[in-house]
Amino acid sequence: MPRHSPSPDLVIIGAGVVGAACAYYAARAGLRVAVVDRGPVAGGTTGAGEGNLLVSDKEAGPELDLALLSARLWRELALELPQEIEYEAKGGLVVAAEAATVKALRGFADGQRAAGVEAVEVGPGELRELEPHLAPDLAGGFHYPQDAQVQPAQAAARLLAAAGLTSPGVEVHLGEEVTELLFGPAGELRGVRTARRDLLAPAVLNAAGTWGGAVAALAGVSLPVLPRRGFVLVTEPLPRVVRHKVYAADYIADVASGSAALQSSAVVEGTPAGPVLIGATRERVGFDRSLSLEALRRLAAQAAALFPVLADVRVLRTYHGFRPYLPDHLPAIGPDPRVPGLFHACGHEGAGIGLAPGTGVLIASTLTGAAPVLDPAPFAPARFAGAEPPG
């Protein structure tokens, strides 16, 4: 028989950065928390991410509001956890090859500014002042000083560690897959079961990222989370030839697209250690982990077009992961009305690292009855109450 651990107030399924942030803010709110994951910390989507904390790619609306809240919280966390999460306020630079695209970016930025985003238009002559190695024939772009970056796996690990320091009532169980959800006599959720233990709690949070749909299915409900595969190239260490997070304007359209086909747009950034990271591709191919040479070729060609200096640089390795895609491009955050005691914090697609602190604050306020810092309604899982299982 599985042994019983002392009962927490909340069990979190998932030790990625979203689960870790939810644990951190729940512990700060005084809750006893247990985190359980079938693998290690950041063993899923978080560990395959670049650590982007972006406001630049989000149009005015609920996701941008959550991103701005999270950007502020990440700055606070960088002060609380100095050096440990490798926070870098590098800023973002969105570039356009044609004047018509610059005009479209201008309208996009106007809406963002109304929501509180700093967006500075940069003319073609000024682009190379910000990034000396950019291609010389670009039409212009926009600089976003609020964009930043963290080391995602380290950030998840440090948030979990900080949660434990905040409250002695935090426990973490790694390498334990949740095989069953436990229910009370009235159908309310009462905890989770692994091969090693039962964790009993009045609230269970699904923070399983791309696998959030499978966790929801254990509760007998549908959450239409689908995997969206993406590749990243890692170059040999270089001098800091790329200063900002730099990407082509079509990346914004790719993020918002619902297409299942392969999409790629140049996203290039340097790292403190020297290698340059090159993304980003998106495609819905299930959990197919095979290497796509077409995706890698596209990334390399688009990066070299943006930064010609990269044309002869060696690529040392590539990696890929699965973004948790929901069809309306908003995460599911909050209680599931179909199962008392079930909460969700998943479906952030490629923005989970950036949106993690704001998600944690929303979950903590929901669980404690505190006033939310922003309107949680757009993220409510209730919008999927009638959803069919994803195909």
Score class of each variant (00 low, 15 high):
residue 5 S to D: 00
residue 7 S to L: 02
residue 10 L to C: 06
residue 11 V to G: 03
residue 11 V to W: 02
residue 11 V to F: 04
residue 13 I to E: 12
residue 13 I to V: 14
residue 18 V to I: 14
residue 20 A to I: 06
residue 30 G to K: 11
residue 33 V to A: 02
residue 39 G to A: 15
residue 39 G to I: 04
residue 46 T to K: 14
residue 46 T to H: 12
residue 46 T to S: 13
residue 49 G to A: 15
residue 64 L to R: 13
residue 78 A to E: 11
residue 78 A to N: 10
residue 79 L to K: 14
residue 80 E to Y: 13
residue 87 Y to L: 12
residue 92 G to K: 05
residue 93 L to C: 10
residue 95 V to I: 15
residue 105 L to A: 11
residue 106 R to M: 14
residue 108 F to H: 11
residue 110 D to N: 10
residue 111 G to L: 15
residue 111 G to P: 07
residue 113 R to E: 13
residue 113 R to P: 06
residue 115 A to C: 14
residue 119 A to M: 12
residue 125 G to R: 15
residue 127 L to R: 07
residue 128 R to F: 09
residue 130 L to Y: 06
residue 132 P to Y: 09
residue 144 Y to A: 04
residue 145 P to W: 12
residue 147 D to C: 11
residue 147 D to S: 05
residue 164 G to K: 12
residue 167 S to K: 12
residue 168 P to H: 08
residue 175 G to R: 06
residue 179 T to N: 05
residue 182 L to V: 15
residue 186 A to H: 07
residue 187 G to A: 08
residue 191 G to L: 13
residue 194 T to D: 00
residue 195 A to R: 15
residue 195 A to Q: 10
residue 197 R to C: 07
residue 210 T to H: 00
residue 213 G to V: 08
residue 219 A to I: 03
residue 221 V to Q: 04
residue 226 L to A: 12
residue 233 L to P: 00
residue 240 R to H: 10
residue 247 Y to I: 01
residue 257 S to P: 03
residue 263 Q to D: 00
residue 263 Q to R: 06
residue 265 S to P: 06
residue 268 V to R: 00
residue 271 T to K: 01
residue 272 P to G: 04
residue 272 P to V: 02
residue 275 P to A: 05
residue 276 V to G: 03
residue 291 L to A: 05
residue 292 S to M: 01
residue 293 L to M: 11
residue 306 L to F: 01
residue 307 F to E: 03
residue 311 A to R: 11
residue 319 Y to D: 00
residue 320 H to W: 03
residue 321 G to Q: 09
residue 321 G to K: 14
residue 324 P to H: 01
residue 326 L to R: 03
residue 337 P to N: 04
residue 339 V to Y: 05
residue 344 H to G: 06
residue 353 I to R: 05
residue 366 T to F: 09
residue 371 A to S: 13
residue 371 A to T: 11
residue 372 P to N: 06
residue 375 D to E: 07
residue 376 P to N: 06
residue 378 P to E: 02
residue 379 F to Q: 09
residue 390 P to V: 12
